[in-house]
């Protein structure tokens, strides 16, 4: 039996609300973004003030953070971090754009290393940390909402 227009309208509202609820559950809590921002800013300052620490531990810390990021994007990793839902992944068509962005960022980081600006690493670390803590939750909400609305 076909639903009435009113029933169809209600069903559509319900579907949209549930999609958004799931999308929200796939995101990291704001506290994680703030914690991540503080960590990035702290590492930037530490690397700047203690270059020896950066030489000894820089690669280990970077690889550990990368491993955590990859693990967190898996089904089981999400559960480990208390997320009951794994976010929908970006469509394959977006990967070239992400790779270009990553290469551009790496290129800029190498170029920035050649500038003679005092405490550049600390400044960049604090800027990246602030960006992560302040804009991270907004960006995450935007991305998850758009992905959830994808057919």
């Amino acid at each position: 039996m076909s639903p009435t227009p009113e029933e169809a309208q209600r069903a559509l509202h319900d579907v949209e609300a549930r999609r958004q609820e799931t999308a929200a559950a796939a995101g990291w809590p704001v506290a994680y973004w703030i914690g991540g921002g503080v960590l990035v800013a702290g590492l930037g300052v530490l690397y700047d003030l203690k270059p020896d620490f950066s030489r000894d531990w820089g690669n280990v810390i970077t690889l550990t953070l990368l491993a955590i990021a990859v693990l967190a994007s898996t089904r089981q990793g999400s559960a480990w971090f208390g997320r009951p839902v794994r976010a929908r992944q970006a469509p394959a068509s977006r990967w070239p754009l992400a790779i270009i962005g990553g290469v551009l960022l790496a290129f800029l980081a190498v170029r920035a290393g050649q500038w003679e600006v005092p405490h550049l690493v600390a400044i960049l670390g604090v800027a990246a940390g602030l960006l992560m803590a302040l804009a991270g939750p907004w960006w995450q909400h935007r991305v998850l909402t758009r992905r959830a609305a994808r057919p």
């Binding site: 069903a11 319900d14 579907v15 949209e16 549930r18 999609r19 958004q20 609820e21 799931t22 999308a23 559950a25 796939a26 089904r75 999400s78 559960a79 009951p84 839902v85 794994r86 976010a87 929908r88 992944q89 959830a148």
Partner: peptide, 18 residues
């Protein structure tokens, strides 16, 4: 059933309890 499908539509892999 529609509610279950709609909840799953916003994600890839959701826990049963969710």
């Amino acid at each position: 059933r529609l509610a279950i499908m709609a909840s799953l539509a916003g994600a890839e892999w959701a826990e049963f309890s969710f």
